[in-house]
Simulated assay, not measured.
Amino acid sequence: MSAPQSPARMIPARLRKFLGSIAVMAVLFAWIWAFTSLYDRLPSNRFVHLIYFVALGMGWILPVIPLISWMGKADKPLDVGQR
């Protein structure tokens, strides 16, 4: 016979939000650093700069969406005394 399986341990919501906030800040800082360092390689054209900064200013959200949805998950209610 196999041993009874313990329920999967979840990270509490407060800890998930704390870790997720730190991760979002790290992604944002890395995003800013990477794309401002690439700015020097752009041609000196105002239209190119406008497109570059608009696209990259909104583009950081795409990699962060899964992280934000993970942070927003609710805790499972405890299964105490139910049969």
Rank of each mutant, 00 (worst) to 15 (best):
V64E: 12
S44R: 11
V64G: 05
W60Q: 04
F47I: 15
S6Y: 03
A26H: 07
A34V: 13
F35G: 02
H49P: 02
L78N: 07
W31M: 01
A23C: 09
L78S: 03
A34D: 08
R16T: 11
R14V: 08
A26K: 06
M71H: 00
H49W: 05
V80C: 00
Y52W: 10
M71T: 03
L28I: 14
M58A: 15
G81F: 08
Y52V: 00
Q82G: 01
G72C: 13
A13L: 14
L28Y: 12
S6C: 08
L78H: 07
S2V: 06
M10P: 05
Q5P: 00
M1V: 11
V48S: 00
A13G: 01
P7S: 00
A8M: 07
L56K: 07
H49I: 06
L38D: 06
F53G: 04
I51S: 10
F29Q: 08
P43C: 04
I61A: 12
L62N: 00
P7A: 05
V27G: 01
K76H: 11
W33C: 04
S69I: 14
L15G: 03
L56Y: 11
A30M: 09
P63C: 02
V80D: 11
A34T: 13
R16H: 01
F29K: 06
P4C: 05
P63G: 02
S69H: 13
P66L: 06
T36V: 14
I22E: 06
P12A: 02
W33F: 08
D79Y: 11
I51D: 02
S6R: 12
R9H: 12
S21Q: 04
L62P: 01
P12E: 01
I68P: 01
M10Q: 15
S6K: 13
F29V: 14
L56Q: 08
